[in-house]
Design a binder for these strands. Structure first.
Length: 571
DNA sequence: GCCTCTCTGGTTTTT
DNA sequence: CCAGAGAGGC
């Protein structure tokens, strides 16, 4: 059997009818509506393999994602399927794509600055850290066509742009904007169009105007664009993403096909039913009824606790009940020669998700006392990549030879403190530039490191409970999911005067609920201390949108103060 | 430049 | 309530 035939025979293995249709529809526009747990990444990767199997040169295929995490997953799965040929497919974030386009076709000898360096520059221009943060946000929105420039911003904006130009720097937004400008009014727009003959875009519901325009420039005359996503999981409107792009796709790229993946392989019927009830209350959507392939499953639990501390304690109790009640976690997780991958109580199977990072505090305190190992994702956590980037930068500043610096970076990949995922990313970057002269390779590596530097700290292998926001949880799944603070004001979030986008908030809760495979527990507190003040809190109105047959309600009663505690109050 | 006091404000976040 | 910024004293 030829290599091509071998690939083709593997491509359809285990795919359902809709997934297969998405894979074989290679010509013209294709919209793949992929709800949670419907095998979206699997379908994309198989489609990539199918294209290559059909003889499309891998370097003419583009697969864009939003996050490095998604790109890395896609890369790994493609390489498994295609081997070395997969390496030639461009798989990466929008920003990496922009960076490569600039380096290959427009300009060399520039550096990419991350958000931190951007605010450093702005600090000098505005004279205040807080102002600089605000200004960085605004400049980013202006460059992304999300906001118009106003009079009070103009001076700082121009000064900032001058600084970048003089020092040959590009910020993240430039990585989209510069190639876009070259393509939209450049004479060689046609040559860009011919670079990729097949384009796939992941999470299409989250693209913003700049990214949309960039895509339009890249799509060839044959119109081979495959957009994959789920309008019900659009949760980034606040940073300029526009679900409209997804909803308008068919009008936008006429003559195409729409495939809806309906089989959900992740969640129990109950969890999917409850989630569908909720999202059914949105109006701006594409109607799609998902079907749970799995078993019925237990009812979802809604727990009302007196306050956020009791809420956290209730969560701990639920976890302990599921791990089998042992309190010797250290012993359990550290037991040599034992494999907990299939143990129904491994802590990596649990996640606690919330709307705001501030909620993590109460949870952390209670968890800490319980001895349950946990990892908090996001917030501020700096990742290992950052350490390497700093290290390399220091070498450069010391004026070391470019080749030596690269060697040092490669050495650092072997550091035990670097996580498996980071190591894979680093190794990949370094090997991508290995064939270039050291100096060029070094700038390339540094620039790509900048794109990774904020990194996400989620380690799926850690034997620990995961704490994260609803936003960060997107794309992940866990056996047991807790959503804490399902209260009016938190989910949906309302901030004083600010008008709340109820549909977006509903989608956010939908994303959270659909992370769960077997067990879903929604918790709320009747009193929550916010900014030092204890305020009464009502359950989320979204809970009323879930059919009662899916729900089991539990109430944790108010703490009865012991006489001793009452006495204490006197002093 | 550093310490301390007072004030302010406080979603979600990737690259 | 509490982190982080700005003011002001030394």
């Amino acid at each position: 059997m030829s290599a091509e035939n071998r690939v083709i025979s593997q491509v359809f293995e285990g795919l359902n009818e809709e997934q297969q249709r998405a894979v074989v529809t290679t010509e013209g526009p294709l919209l793949v509506v992929a709800g949670p747990g419907t095998g979206k990444t699997l379908t994309i990767v198989r489609r990539l393999a199918y294209l290559v199997g059909r003889g499309v040169p891998p370097e003419r295929i583009l697969a864009v994602t939003f996050t490095n995490r998604a790109a890395r997953e896609m890369r790994e799965r493609t390489d498994t399927l295609l081997g070395s040929r997969g390496g030639k497919v461009f798989i990466g974030t929008f920003h990496l794509l922009g960076l490569r386009i600039i380096m290959e076709s427009l300009q060399r000898g520039f550096s990419v600055i991350d958000r931190e360096r951007q605010t450093d520059i702005l600090k000098g221009l505005t004279g205040g850290a807080k102002k600089a943060d605000l200004m960085a946000e605004r400049i980013s929105r202006i460059k992304g066509f999300i906001e118009e420039i106003d009079e009070e911003t103009r001076d700082v904006f121009e000064a900032y742009e001058n600084t970048l130009r003089n020092d040959h720097l590009y910020d993240f937004d430039d990585l989209i904007r510069v190639p876009l400008a070259a393509m939209e009014d450049g004479t060689d727009a046609e040559s860009f169009k011919r670079t990729f003959s097949y384009i796939m875009v992941d999470e299409y519901q989250d693209i913003n105007l700049a990214q949309y325009r960039l895509l339009r420039c890249l799509v060839s005359d044959e119109g081979n664009i495959c957009a994959v996503g789920d309008p019900d999981q659009a949760i980034y409107a606040f940073r300029g993403a526009d679900v409209g792009n997804f909803l308008n796709f068919e009008k936008d790229f006429p003559g195409g096909l729409k495939v809806t993946l309906r089989q959900n392989y992740r969640s129990s019927k109950v969890i999917l039913g409850a989630s569908s009830d909720l999202i059914g209350h949105n109006t701006r959507r594409m109607d799609k009824e998902l079907e749970a392939v799995g078993s019925k499953g237990a009812r979802i639990t809604v727990i009302s606790a007196p306050d956020e501390k009791a809420e956290a304690e209730a969560i701990v109790r639920e976890i302990e009940a599921r791990v089998g009640g042992t309190s010797h976690y250290g012993l359990l997780t550290g037991a040599p020669g034992m494999d907990f991958a299939d143990c129904p109580g491994g802590f990596r199977d649990f996640a606690v998700i919330y709307r705001t990072n501030a909620q993590a505090k109460a949870l952390e305190e209670v968890l800490h006392r319980s001895g349950i190992p946990f990892q908090v994702v996001g917030g501020k956590g700096a990742a290992g990549i950052r350490m390497i980037a700093d290290h390399v930068r220091r070498h450069i500043e010391e004026g070391q030879d470019a080749a030596d610096v690269l060697g040092a970076a490669e050495c650092l990949c072997g550091e035990p403190s670097i996580s498996e995922d980071d190591r894979a990313s680093l190794y990949q970057i370094i090997s991508a530039y290995r064939s270039l002269p050291p100096h060029e390779a070094l700038t390339g590596v540094m620039n790509e490191l900048s794109l990774l530097s904020s990194g996400d700290s989620f380690d799926p292998r850690a034997e620990a409970l995961t704490l994260m926001t609803l936003h960060t949880a997107k794309g992940l799944e866990f056996k047991v999911v807790f959503i804490a603070g399902v209260e009016d004001g938190l989910v949906p979030f309302t901030l004083g005067r600010g008008e709340t986008d109820m549909e977006e908030e509903r989608r956010l809760l939908y994303v959270g609920m659909t992370r769960a495979r077997d067990d879903l527990i929604l918790t709320c507190a009747r009193n929550r201390s916010l900014y030092g003040r204890i305020s009464q809190s009502r359950p989320s109105p979204f809970l009323d949108e879930i059919s009662e047959r899916f729900v089991e309600k539990r109430v944790v009663r108010d703490r009865v103060k012991s006489p001793k505690q009452r006495q204490m109050k006197l002093f």
